[in-house]
Design a protein around this nucleic acid. Structure first.
Lengths: 157, 157
DNA sequence: TATTTACTTGACTAAACTAGTCGGGTTTAC
DNA sequence: GTAAACCCGACTAGTTTAGTCAAGTAAATA
């Protein structure tokens, strides 16, 4: 199992999309500014999110990305999976052939943990995150900061 | 967060120690044979486990390692921690300064997940694993296999 | 006391992965 | 037709994993 910046960025970017949905298509440049994620890296991530039909794109000026489903129907587990981060903690990818074709000593322990993690992150949807007080607060802060130009001061670098 | 072979090996080796405790000190060569873990790699892991006082060593012929506490008092979380694998899923190591000194949009989500994982693995001790039926079965298989020389057939290589 | 077993330490390494960058496209609104 | 935005592939520095290898030290036993 690996849960790194890649998966966290993907979830953060998708949540940004959900929070700002009413503004129409959201450009990656906006997400990059608000969430402080490299634009080029976002492009990589959104390529995968689009392949998995979690977002759809609108090209041309004024274009951007939007969620391709209701935020109620998109779970954190799905997003992490879409960018190829596995929530499986076992070595054998849950196949149980970890030692000479049979189960290793700790196989069931890792299976149990994987199930827990997956169940937890499947139970959390973008809609449920949007409703959290602290998420709304951070979102308000981010929107005002980026409007005022407090972030990304130097343009490039 | 990272949960890889390193942490799994450490837990497996510690469980092997718990299962074979009545035989006296267990050599790394025995663990290597039964669990199919490279001897040199085990040495690295046990160096850390010893530094964290999870095992104690007996040098010389007939020596080996044993648990330095009751198996009831050693949790899976402690073992993973001892070999420097973090169960923390946040980017800021739970400090909440992920975005310009303030919380990022998804900080609490990752905190919640970290707490769940930690609570789960803290609740599982070596003693509780030893009592599991499937663990005892695998252990019996491993002991008979290694006695019969079914594993590690070619000696070296 | 010599030998052997086993722990101890540190340096080294190939391969994989992360978190990007860079440069060139294509599409479409205005 | 030009600029805003998506799209795509190649490249890369740095880190980590999962080891190997060599040279020890400590202690039991013959």
């Amino acid at each position: 199992m690996r849960l790194t910046t890649k998966g966290r960025y993907a979830v953060t970017a998708m949540l940004d999309l959900a929070l700002n949905a009413e503004k129409g298509p959201i450009s990656l440049a906006d997400i990059s500014r608000r969430q402080e994620i490299s634009l080029s890296y976002l492009e990589q991530l959104f390529s995968k999110l689009r392949q998995q039909s979690l977002v759809s794109s609108v090209r041309g000026p004024g274009g951007g990305y939007k969620l391709s489903r209701e935020p109620e129907a998109i779970s954190v587990a799905q997003i992490i999976d879409a960018v190829n981060e596995s929530l499986d903690v076992t070595n054998c990818e849950s196949q149980g052939n970890c030692q000479q074709g049979q189960q290793c000593l700790t196989h069931n322990l890792w299976m149990d943990l994987s199930d827990r993690i997956h169940a937890f992150l499947s139970s959390i949807t973008l809609a449920s995150l949007v409703q959290r007080d602290e998420v709304r607060e951070v979102s308000v802060r981010q929107n005002s900061s980026s409007e005022l130009g407090l972030l990304d001061v130097s343009g490039v670098q």
